[in-house]
Amino acid sequence: METPPLPFRRTIRRRELHQMIPLAETTIYDMERRGEFPRRFNLTPRCVVWDLEEVEAWIEERKQQSRSGKSSPAPGPDVNQRITRPVRSRNQ
């Protein structure tokens, strides 16, 4: 018995993703690690893609949260990890 073909799932590469999501690469990567953004996957060792349907669902979810007023503010940076440098006075 032959298995039915998988439904067509469109994937997008980095350039298309950045046209849809105007966030820095590191922001997207950090959100992926925290489970807050769809995960990328490799088609080949040098070709990374995202599932377009998952990205569109993420955008829609963010839009609904924003419009309902139920979105929690994005967490701020962890200031305990900050590397401090001495502040120079302007006279130096």
Rank of each mutant, 00 (worst) to 15 (best):
Q19Y: 02
M20K: 01
M20C: 04
I21W: 03
P22E: 00
P22N: 07
P22I: 02
L23S: 05
L23N: 06
A24D: 11
A24I: 03
A24L: 10
E25I: 05
T26K: 13
T26W: 13
T26N: 13
T27C: 05
T27H: 13
T27Y: 01
T27K: 08
I28N: 13
I28R: 05
I28W: 11
Y29N: 08
Y29R: 11
Y29I: 06
D30L: 09
D30E: 09
D30W: 12
D30N: 08
M31V: 06
M31W: 08
E32D: 06
E32T: 03
E32M: 15
E32Q: 14
R33Q: 15
R33I: 15
R33C: 15
R33W: 12
R33N: 10
R34T: 03
R34M: 01
R34S: 02
R34D: 08
G35L: 04
G35I: 03
G35M: 01
G35V: 03
G35N: 10
G35Q: 02
E36N: 14
E36G: 08
P38T: 04
P38W: 03
P38M: 01
R39V: 15
R39W: 00
R40M: 12
R40A: 15
R40P: 15
R40C: 09
F41D: 08
F41P: 15
F41T: 09
F41M: 02
N42T: 09
N42D: 14
N42Y: 14
N42L: 13
N42M: 11
N42I: 00
N42S: 11
L43P: 09
T44G: 00
T44I: 05
T44R: 07
T44Q: 09
T44F: 07
P45G: 00
P45S: 08
P45K: 07
R46L: 11
R46Q: 04
R46D: 14
C47H: 07
C47N: 14
C47P: 05
C47M: 11
V48Y: 04
V48W: 03
V48M: 15
V48E: 12
V48K: 15
V49N: 14
V49T: 12
W50D: 03
W50F: 03
W50S: 09
D51C: 12
D51M: 02
D51F: 02
D51Q: 07
L52G: 05
L52Q: 10
L52V: 05
L52R: 10
L52F: 04
L52P: 07
E53D: 11
E53R: 15
E53K: 07
E53L: 06
E54D: 06
E54Y: 00
E54M: 05
E54N: 12
E54L: 05
V55E: 00
V55R: 01
V55K: 00
V55D: 01
E56R: 09
E56Q: 05
A57M: 04
A57N: 04
W58S: 00
W58P: 02
I59E: 00
I59C: 12
R62N: 14
R62P: 08
R62I: 05
R62W: 07
K63A: 03
K63M: 10
K63N: 09
Q64W: 07
Q64I: 14
Q65H: 13
Q65P: 01
Q65R: 14
Q65D: 07
Q65G: 01
Q65A: 12
S66A: 13
S66K: 13
S66H: 13
S68R: 13
S68L: 00
G69Q: 03
G69M: 07
G69T: 00
